[in-house]
Computed example of a mutant assay.
Amino acid sequence: MDQKEDWTLEDHFKNLVTEARDLYLSDEVPCVDGPPTPLEFHRDWVCPNRPVIFRRCIDHWPALSKWTPAYLRDKIGDQAVTVAVTPNGMADAVYKDKFVMPEERQMKFSSFLDILEKKENKQTQTVVPLQEEGVFYVQKQNSNLLSEFRDIIDDVETELVWASTALGKQPDAVNFWMGEEKAVTSMHKDHYENLYCVISGQKHFILHPPTDLPYIPYGTYPAARYKVTNGEDFDVMDEPDVGEVPWIPIDPVLPNLERWPKYGNSKPVHCTVHAGDVLYLPSLWFHHVRQEHATIAVNFWYDMEYDIKYNYFKFLEGLVKSNQSASVR
């Protein structure tokens, strides 16, 4: 777009998105063989805030060959782990105008594996045991690999040395992920540099750069949590102590463009991360995640630098909110 004195804020938003795509973004997530040097990682990907997939980056981890259901059952089957359970696979997502968190259950890891294996085998049962209803996902994002899964830590690394060197810090959290195909991570952003390592299976990501913010619908929703009540059904229970949560309501797989027409101006980037791959997901990038059944992953969160990029993002966020308020008036 040519510069014009009579541009509206919407014109500037459109120009921002167009220039970002033309100058430094691509239609696909680049793939690079092997781990980068710390200098390459920082210079080529962290500084420009661009995602990348490093292929065959963790092939030396024993976990890639060891972490079969039988091995995990033997090593940590009796270990109590935290499992997120929802009726629909949508944990931490907008449902019926509320931000709904999962029910969290403590169970033996062997019991969790039993449930996944039954669903994978598609066993037909006239009556589904109550404790197995819903969608089960190990997704506790509190460095659970170092606590609940400590007995298999030796099969992986607790940091990516080249990333730690480049970022000048240790990971804030190291998380273990495993769940059903129906378990979905709704679209959101994080204030972390995310190194996402797939051990087995595949993860499917839909990504949006921070510059797409003007076209990403946001709302503020009262917090709630799924809970099985009366020993029978899932219910949605309010969580007043949490307060209201800003979240993205749209499903980028099947976006409702009648309700959120501006989302049609965005251009999502799709990528699949395979076993042995590491996805670098930069801070402030919007992402939505799906997976194959029983996919296992480990991710490293490094706290982002609150530098000029963060300042620009917050400035853009303020402009978007002001523009929305002006449109309502």
Rank of each mutant, 00 (worst) to 15 (best):
L9I: 10
E10Q: 14
D11P: 00
D11A: 01
H12D: 06
F13E: 10
F13M: 13
K14P: 00
K14G: 05
N15Y: 05
L16M: 12
L16C: 01
L16G: 00
V17N: 00
R21Q: 00
D22Q: 05
Y24N: 06
L25F: 11
L25P: 04
L25A: 06
S26R: 15
E28Q: 15
E28H: 15
E28F: 14
V29C: 15
P30L: 07
C31Y: 11
C31L: 06
V32L: 11
V32D: 04
D33K: 12
G34H: 14
G34E: 08
P35D: 03
P36C: 08
P38H: 12
P38G: 11
L39F: 11
F41K: 08
H42E: 06
H42N: 08
D44P: 12
V46D: 09
P48K: 14
N49I: 03
N49M: 10
R50V: 09
R50S: 12
V52G: 15
I53C: 01
F54S: 07
R55H: 09
R55I: 09
C57V: 11
I58F: 01
I58K: 04
W61D: 02
P62F: 09
L64G: 08
S65F: 01
T68Y: 06
P69I: 08
P69S: 13
A70S: 12
A70P: 03
A70H: 05
Y71G: 13
L72V: 04
L72T: 06
L72Y: 02
R73L: 07
D74M: 02
K75W: 02
K75E: 09
I76G: 00
D78C: 06
D78L: 07
Q79V: 09
Q79D: 14
A80S: 09
A80E: 09
V83I: 14
V85Q: 05
V85Y: 01
P87M: 01
G89M: 04
A91H: 05
A91C: 09
D92H: 08
A93V: 03
A93I: 03
V94F: 12
